[in-house]
């Protein structure tokens, strides 16, 4: 197959994103993590693909490779999609270093849309890491649509989180950490300290 004009070889069980990364071609992602199942939610990894003369925009983290597929990781349209997505997310987390760096690359204006400082961009890294790697499900999505947020489940978090907290490092905005400590303060204050003292 071809990515950005280069011939690239890939195993047939790979996604376009895996093939590109193997070939050293960078595609930006926010919700992707190698240890986790592809999620396809942030849509930052969208690329242009062309097969049998038809052009399409797909998320590379899920799109399977195919013989003779032509992929363009940058184009005016791809860049526009990434720019608007960044502008939408910057309304929530205007100072996230990851977003700020990408905003510079894609000329995204962080003040374009009305601010809604929820900090979380709902990439789901914490939720999925806890479910897939730790298999604890201590943090999950609640609500739907524009009201969706992450929430630590106090009963599970009280038992599982105090000596884990591995999701904090995955969070692009530090909101996971904030949400956890808020849950702790509200639902089981002092529990973590007691746990540390006992350990």
């Amino acid at each position: 197959m071809q990515i950005d004009g280069r011939e690239v070889k890939a195993r047939d069980d790979m996604t376009v994103l895996q093939a590109a990364r193997t070939a050293g071609i960078h595609i930006p992602t926010l919700c992707h993590h190698e240890k986790l199942e592809p999620f396809g939610a942030c849509r930052m990894c969208m690329v242009e693909v062309e097969a049998r003369g038809r052009k399409n925009y797909v998320v590379s983290c899920l799109y399977p490779v195919a013989q003779d597929l032509v992929v363009r990781t940058r184009s005016e349209r791809v860049d526009k999609i990434r720019r608007v997505i960044l502008e939408e997310l910057l309304a929530h987390a205007p100072n996230s270093p990851e977003l700020v760096a990408l905003a510079r690359e894609y000329r995204a204006d962080r003040d374009r849309f009305e601010k809604d400082a929820s900090f979380c961009i709902l990439c789901g890294l914490c939720v999925r890491y806890c479910a897939e790697v730790k298999q604890k499900n201590a943090v999950d999505f609640i609500e739907r649509g524009a009201r969706r947020e992450i929430s630590f489940i106090p009963e599970i978090a009280a038992k599982e989180c105090w000596d884990c907290q591995e999701c904090f490092a995955l969070c692009p905005t530090s909101y996971a950490q904030a949400a956890y400590f808020l849950t702790e303060a509200l639902a089981f204050p002092g529990r973590r300290k007691a746990g540390v003292a006992n350990a």
Partner: peptide
């Protein structure tokens, strides 16, 4: 906005 599942950014945001 109330009926979207809220998973992907371009729909939710």
């Amino acid at each position: 906005t109330n009926e979207s599942c809220g998973k992907c950014v371009p729909c939710r945001e």
